[in-house]
């Protein structure tokens, strides 16, 4: 019995452990707080600040965009349509299917979309692509919690004369705030960690982007590129960058747990 559990926990500890153990020695403060200087990829001075900030901006923008689309949809599915509605069933099915589409396909489609609307590789194109990737992840996670809102609670709001819109945004959203937040953070984490979808669309640059139309570096790609060089020092930095990314992801996960605790104040159980 212990064995199976050991496997899951073991894999997790093994992976995170290896990355941190290999990455920390190579990690210097300058790596986090500097952008690449000339010859960075040949082993010279600099850091991955461009990639860290790029990833945060990209995942942040994408998460915001995905939230703006998925929250209304999820509320619609649960407040406006009945529990046995066919539309709702079809939409949930679509989310399930979209959830399974590989990120590289989102990347390819994002590339087509980008060319179609006349963008070049840029932060904006990356945001659009990653938002598409995050949409089903966020919506499914949100739907899971919003679905659990007790019928009696929405009835209580209706009986006060509230419209469905008011019930959705003033009652359902507040009731499920912790769950919504978790869904947002899960999607954000996925957005930060995904490389295949931004490969085509976000480009890569050593500078920190100052506008949506400039290309942006991302952390996963920085790791990938550094690992691909023949220089030992640069490969060491890839490990360090991977450690940064891992810690970032773990931190987001922890924050989401803490947030759930903090914001469940109002939640009625």
């Amino acid at each position: 019995m212990g064995l199976a559990l050991f496997l899951v926990v073991g894999c997790l500890v093994f992976i995170v452990g290896t990355i941190v153990w290999k990455g920390l020695p190579a990690l210097k403060l300058s790596m986090i707080f500097q952008t690449p200087k000339g010859g960075f990829y040949l082993g010279k001075e600099g850091g991955i600040l461009n990639a860290i900030l790029g990833s945060l901006a990209l995942a942040g923008g994408a998460t915001l965009l995905a939230l703006l689309v998925s929250l209304p949809i999820v509320l619609y599915l649960n407040v406006y349509t009945g529990r046995r509605s066919r539309t709702a069933g079809f939409i949930r099915f679509s989310f399930d299917v979209l959830w399974g589409v590989p990120s590289i396909v989102y990347g390819a489609f994002g590339f087509l979309l980008m060319v179609f609307i006349g963008l070049r590789t840029s932060l904006l194109a990356g945001i659009l692509t990653v938002a598409l990737l995050e949409l089903p992840i966020m919506s499914r996670a949100m739907d899971e919690v919003v679905r659990l809102v007790p019928r009696d609670l929405t009835d209580a709001a209706y009986s006060l004369g509230a419209t469905r819109l008011e019930t959705a945004f003033r009652v359902v959203v507040r009731q499920t705030l912790p769950g919504i937040l978790t869904a947002v953070l899960i999607a954000f984490g996925r957005g930060i960690g995904d490389a295949a979808s931004v490969l085509f669309t976000a480009g890569f640059t050593d500078r920190v982007p100052t506008s949506l139309l400039q290309p942006a570096a991302t952390l996963p790609l920085a790791i990938f590129f550094q690992l691909g060089t023949p220089f030992a020092e640069v490969r060491e930095r890839a490990y360090a960058s991977a450690a940064v990314l891992t810690v970032l992801i773990l931190a987001i996960s922890l924050i989401s747990r803490a947030a759930v605790r903090k914001y469940s104040r109002h939640t009625i159980r």
């Binding site: 007790p150 009696d152 009835d155 209580a156 006060l160 507040r174 109002h266 939640t267 009625i268």
Partner: peptide, 12 residues
């Protein structure tokens, strides 16, 4: 005004 079996206070 409706009172339900289990009091349903709004989350606020």
């Amino acid at each position: 005004g409706l009172l339900s079996q289990k009091p349903q206070v709004l989350p606020m």
